[in-house]
């Protein structure tokens, strides 16, 4: 009986470790040349493993359509609207398309600024950041992007909170 207990503990822990190393392996496996710049790198690095996810997003036309609804949600959301109402929203949408496209290993180049400079002085806090994530989730649902594919993209975007959230 006791052995059985220990076995189930060990299995759970092992599952945790496997899942953990999978994630960290994904984040450390970057193509040569994109890994050097750390926090100042303009966006999350290209991940060749996410190519199938790019297709699930409907490739570049899918991202363009997604970003229209995403921006509509951001403008309809009282939490996020103040950050976008005086901005060049068409420009932001185009940069987001490129950024997501690069992360998902699509045939794009991101030419925008790094996340820290873009968000400097904007006083984004964690609640604002999470609200934006939810607005993105709703847009992805509307475009019938499979939940697991959504999460694979969000896993790449989530760590950017460290550059974006500047208000403690």
């Amino acid at each position: 009986m006791y052995k059985y207990k220990m076995l189930s503990c060990a299995l759970l822990l092992a599952a945790g470790l496997i899942a953990g190393t999978t994630v960290s392996a994904q984040t450390t496996m970057q193509p040569a040349g994109s890994s050097a710049s750390g926090d100042t790198y303009p966006t999350a690095p290209r991940d060749p493993a996410l190519k199938p996810v790019f297709e699930q997003f409907g490739s570049k036309p899918g991202l363009v359509a997604l970003m229209n609804d995403f921006m509509d949600n951001l403008m309809a959301d009282p939490v996020t609207r103040p950050f976008f109402q005086n901005a060049d929203r068409e420009h932001i949408k185009a940069e987001l398309v490129d950024q997501f496209c690069v992360i998902l290993d699509g045939p794009c180049t991101y030419t925008g600024k790094d996340m820290a400079s873009v968000h400097r002085g904007m006083n984004v806090d964690r609640a604002d950041f999470n609200a934006l994530v939810e607005d993105l989730q709703k847009a992805m649902n509307k475009h019938d992007i499979p939940f697991r594919a959504q999460n694979k993209l969000l896993a790449k975007l989530a760590p950017m909170n460290r550059q974006i959230i500047t208000k403690p």
Binding site: D69, R126, A127, N130, A131, E134, D135, Q137, A139, K142
Partner: peptide, 13 residues
């Protein structure tokens, strides 16, 4: 699912 007005507080569902 497209209604963003239910962002009542700051954590994800």
């Amino acid at each position: 699912g497209g209604d963003p007005a239910d962002n009542v507080s700051g954590k994800l569902l």
